[in-house]
Nucleic acid binder design. Structure first.
Lengths: 233, 233
DNA sequence: CCCTTTTCACCTAGGTGGTAAGAT
DNA sequence: ATCTTACCACCTAGGTGAAAAGGG
C-alpha cells in the first residue's frame, strides 16, 4: 500500500485547479510528489518510478483579464466542470479558452510528447530502504522542450496530466530491471492531477504556491506565518 | 585500476602537511577524495567505500606563535621529518609539540576511535555506472564526536590518518554485501594523508584552502583568479 | 491577443575560515 | 598554554514568481 504525503495541500491545490510550471531547463513540481510505502518485502529489490498520462486529448486556453480577474471559488469549480465536460465525449472541439477565469477547450491536443518515465534516483534499492522513510520525487523536473536531453519529463503546456507512481519488483532471475514489466504495481492519486503551464493562469494558484513553497518566501507579504497550514473550509 | 583525481592539488597540500578540520557536526574533506576507476566488469555490482587508518600511534602538538609564525618551506619539511622520526621507533615519548611551526610528538595516541567506514551513497551499483564518470566522496564528513550517530567518520584531533579506498565485488551468490569480505581490493594514495585538527595549525595550509576551495572564496584577498592552479615550483 | 522565453531579486540550504569565548 | 566550541559573515548552488521582452 502507498500513502500520498501532503495530501491536504494537494487537495487545496486541486480544488483551485493545480498548475505546474514547465520550462526549457526543467522545473520541479510543487507540491512535491511524496509517498509513504508499506508492505514491501524488506529484503527484495524494487525500482520506483513515475510517469504522466494526458487526462484528455484537449488543450486549454486562458482568458479574462489575463487570469488576474479570478475572484471567487466559482473559478475553480468552473475549471473542473469544463474538464469533466471535455471527458464526457467531446471529440473535435475547435478550441478551449480560460475566459473569465475558467478553463475552456481550445483545440485538440498537440501531438503526444515522448512518454518518458522518471526513475527515483535511489532505484534499485531494498524494500527496507524504501519503507524506512518518505520517498520524495523532488529531483523530478518538468519541461516543455521536446529536444530535452537531461532526462526530464516532457509535457505539453496548456494540457492536463495525471501523475502515476509505479513500484517495480526487480526479479532476481533476470539481469536488468528492463525486463521486469510483469512485476509492477501502479498507484494513481486523482488529487495530484494538474495543468502544465509556462506561466500561472489562476492567480489563486500563484498565491497558494507563494504561501506554501519555502522557495517563494520572497514574495510573501505577511510577516506572521512562515509555514503552510490547511486553510479552514 | 584507480586514479586519484586532483592529484596535483593533493600533492601541494601534502608538501605543507595536509590538515583536515573535524567538528562535532561533521566537516567535509578538502580536497575531496575523488577517483577515476577503470577495468571493472560493467555488468557486475560493486560497493565503494573508504576508511581511515592511524598513520602512527602518536599525537601531535602545535606551538610557536600559535601556528601563525610559520614562514618558509622549513615548516613543511620539519613536519614530515618529525613524522618520519616518530615512525622510526620512538614508542613511549611523553608529548609532541608543534613548536616553531613544526609538528612534534606530544604523547601516545588517544584510545582508538570506532573504526567506521563510509560507503559511497550510490553503492551498490554496476561497474558501468562507477566507470562512467569520476566517483566523488564529497558526502563524507569527519567528526571528533565519539557519540556521533550521523554515520560520520570519527577521528582523534591532532592525530595523523591515511585514507583508504576499497572496491567490494558484490557476490551474487550471497544476499548481502556484508559477506563479501573476500572479494575486495584496496587502494592507498600516500599524498592524501593528513592530520585531523579542530583549528588550522599551519597558516600556509589555511591559505591554500582559501585559495583552492570555492566555498572559502569569501576570504580571498586578490580579485584576479577565482580558480586554483598548480603553483610553479 | 495569447502564450513563451529570458532575466532578475529574493529566497532556501549548506559549505568556508575567522573570531572570541570556553574548557582543561 | 593549548585545544575546542559556538557563532558569524560570506560564499556556492540552486529553487521561486515577477516582469519585461519576444513570437506567432
Amino acid at each position: 500500500t502507498v500513502q500520498l504525503e501532503m495530501k491536504a495541500l494537494w487537495e487545496e491545490f486541486n480544488q483551485l485547479g493545480t498548475e505546474m510550471i514547465v520550462t526549457k531547463a526543467g522545473r520541479r513540481m510543487f507540491p512535491t510528489f511524496q509517498v509513504k510505502i508499506l508492505g514491501m518485502d524488506s529484503r527484495a529489490d524494487y525500482a520506483l518510478l513515475m510517469d504522466f498520462v494526458p487526462l484528455d486529448d484537449k488543450r486549454y486556453r486562458c482568458a479574462g483579464g489575463g487570469g488576474w480577474g479570478c475572484g471567487g471559488p466559482a473559478c475553480a469549480r468552473g475549471c473542473r466542470r469544463e474538464g469533466a465536460a471535455g471527458r464526457r465525449g467531446l471529440r473535435s472541439v475547435p478550441r478551449y479558452a480560460f475566459h473569465s477565469s475558467a478553463w475552456l477547450v481550445a483545440g485538440r491536443a498537440d501531438p503526444a510528447t515522448p512518454g518518458r518515465v522518471h526513475f527515483h534516483p535511489d532505484s534499485p534499492a531494498k524494500g527496507a530502504q524504501w519503507m524506512r522513510q518518505i520517498v520524495s520525487f523532488d529531483k523530478l523536473k518538468l519541461t516543455n522542450n521536446l529536444q530535452d536531453d537531461n532526462g526530464h519529463i516532457i509535457l505539453n503546456s496548456m494540457h492536463r496530466y495525471q501523475p502515476r507512481f509505479h513500484v517495480v519488483f526487480v526479479d532476481p532471475r533476470r539481469d536488468s530491471e528492463r525486463y521486469a514489466q510483469e512485476n509492477f504495481k501502479s498507484f494513481v492519486f486523482a488529487e495530484t492531477q494538474f495543468t502544465a503551464v509556462t506561466a500561472y493562469q489562476n492567480h489563486r494558484i500563484t498565491q497558494l504556491k507563494i504561501a506554501s513553497n519555502p522557495f517563494a518566501k520572497g514574495f510573501r507579504e505577511s510577516g506572521d506565518s512562515d509555514s503552510w497550514t490547511v486553510s479552514p473550509r
